[in-house]
């Protein structure tokens, strides 16, 4: 398999609070390969958005990031803000959740899309740079092209429109256009369709799929909608309380879930085909400042054994067809559950 373009190694994001340190993201290992669509699934507060923000170094103090974020072997956590700014939007672009609060209401949408082209100097002129009158025109043409591509009708007329003149779906498209303007290799999408209706969601998802196929951009999609992740992604990572509890290809995770949390999530989604009683997961998400020792899901787990509360343990490879495969993160179906080892605390390798 090709080398991953983005690799997270032991990524941990900590926020100090009055009640102690909160590990919003706890030792996350992920690998994103070129052209891959990775889904990050979990309930609110499980740290999935924080993973994306940590990748781009957007964690405000006093939050701290430790671990490594490797983009082509470069560790992004070691870069200065100035160096990071050169990457944001150009190499890695982010699509935020709420378009209305992300777009600046005081500037026309077209100008906001042009901004990233301008800041990254994507369309440089020969040498007259500060006096390059044609640059603005070239950038505008590129913006119109991107707007056309994301399906904003009449881009010429819409270029000068303000965000409030756009509908929710159009605003989301404008955000995607901002993300796409510089042709990034990685697109981080943080719940891009949560605020939208299903018919508009279907349009946006089709658009992102097309971008993935035509430009080869790798996508990390953060969502709480397992159905959406199952339809759109190649790989899925399920997060719970800041940790990845299960990871694997869509078929592995959805058809053969191993972690009790994933199984519980799948059971409590209403089914469109048949009506069966919903089996909710009892209890609620634990307080991140006061996590239980061992498995964070243990207090809600139906398969709880005393050993589960004894200490931290790694993701375990799922044994399929009776054999354990050599694993690298993201390639093999893994789950963080002691059931897989027969409730024996694994020895650290």
């Amino acid at each position: 398999m090709a080398r991953p373009i983005l690799e997270l190694r032991n990524l941990t994001t900590v926020f100090p609070t009055r009640r102690g340190e909160v590990r919003a993201v706890d030792a996350v290992n992920l690998a994103l390969y070129p052209g891959q669509i990775l889904g990050l699934v979990g309930e609110s507060g499980c740290g999935k958005s924080t993973v994306l923000l940590s990748i781009l170094g957007l964690i405000a103090r006093p939050g701290r990031i430790t671990g490594e974020v490797l983009l082509d072997g470069r560790d992004l956590t070691k870069l200065s803000n100035r160096e990071l700014r050169r990457l944001r939007g150009k190499e890695i672009a982010m699509i935020f959740q709420d378009p209305l609060s992300t777009l600046n209401p005081a500037f026309p949408v077209g100008e906001q899309i042009r901004e990233s082209l301008r800041l990254h100097n994507m369309l440089p002129g020969p040498w007259l740079w500060p006096f390059d009158a044609g640059r603005r025109q070239r950038e505008k043409e590129r913006v119109l092209q991107v707007m056309e591509e994301v399906g904003i009708p009449a881009p010429e007329a819409r270029y000068r429109a303000y965000p409030h003149q756009f509908s929710g779906g159009m605003q989301q498209r404008a955000l995607i256009a901002i993300g796409l303007a510089c042709n990034p290799r990685i697109l981080l999408a943080d719940e891009p369709t949560t605020a939208l209706d299903v018919t508009i969601q279907a349009q946006i998802i089709a658009l992102m799929k097309r971008i993935n196929q035509e430009h080869g951009a790798a996508i990390i999609l953060v969502t709480h909608d397992l159905g959406l992740a199952a339809e759109f992604c190649d790989h899925i990572a399920v997060m719970y309380a800041g940790r990845i509890v299960e990871i694997g290809s869509v078929d592995q995770v959805i058809e053969n879930p191993q972690h009790p949390y994933t199984q519980g999530l799948l059971r409590c989604i209403p089914n469109l085909k048949e009506r069966r009683p919903l089996q909710p997961i009892p209890g609620s998400v634990p307080d991140l400042a006061d996590l239980p020792l061992g498995c964070a899901f243990a207090p809600r787990c139906p398969d709880f054994q005393p050993v589960c509360a004894e200490g931290f343990f790694r993701l375990q490879p799922v044994i399929e067809n009776g054999r354990k495969k050599v694993h690298r993160s993201g390639e093999v179906h893994m789950a963080r559950c002691l059931r897989l080892t027969g409730y024996r605390m694994p020895e650290d390798d």
């Binding site: 018919t199 159905g227 339809e231």
Partner: peptide, 25 residues
């Protein structure tokens, strides 16, 4: 029909072809 086709579903077998409605409401 379009509304139903637009719902993402977990089950592989249940996935139908999309009807993509143009534009918004």
């Amino acid at each position: 029909q379009a509304l139903l086709a637009a719902v993402p579903v977990v089950e592989k077998a249940a996935r139908r072809s999309r009807i993509l409605l143009q534009g918004g409401v």
